[in-house]
């Protein structure tokens, strides 16, 4: 998967990752892919829910040693 931009939200807790996600995606071009890195377990439900609500495409999520990785494609 080609990642166009990475947003580091490690260490941040709710609501900072979602606010940063919304602000970042707003500045991206349609079709670009964002990789969000985070450590808040809440993001596992918050990020897909935000994508569904805003119409952006939630591609997949992965986990690596305590860091969650989310891939989002801007609509």
């Amino acid at each position: 998967m080609q990642v166009d931009q990475t947003l580091d939200c490690k260490g941040l807790s709710c609501p900072m990752p979602i606010i940063k996600l919304a602000k970042t995606v707003k500045k991206m071009n349609s079709g670009e892919v964002l990789e969000l890195l985070g450590t808040d377990p809440g993001s596992k439900t918050d990020v897909p829910a935000w994508c569904e609500k805003t119409g952006n495409i939630f591609l997949e999520q992965a986990e690596d040693g305590g860091t969650f990785k989310f891939y989002i494609k801007k609509k």
């Binding site: 490690k10 260490g11 941040l12 940063k20 450590t39 986990e63 040693g65 305590g66």
Partner: peptide, 20 residues
């Protein structure tokens, strides 16, 4: 987030993650 973005940026650490 717009005016002082550095407040929520910088070094962060994750210690003893349960998924490791």
């Amino acid at each position: 987030m717009e005016a002082l973005p550095n407040i929520s940026m910088g070094k962060s650490y994750t210690i003893l993650p349960g998924t490791a």
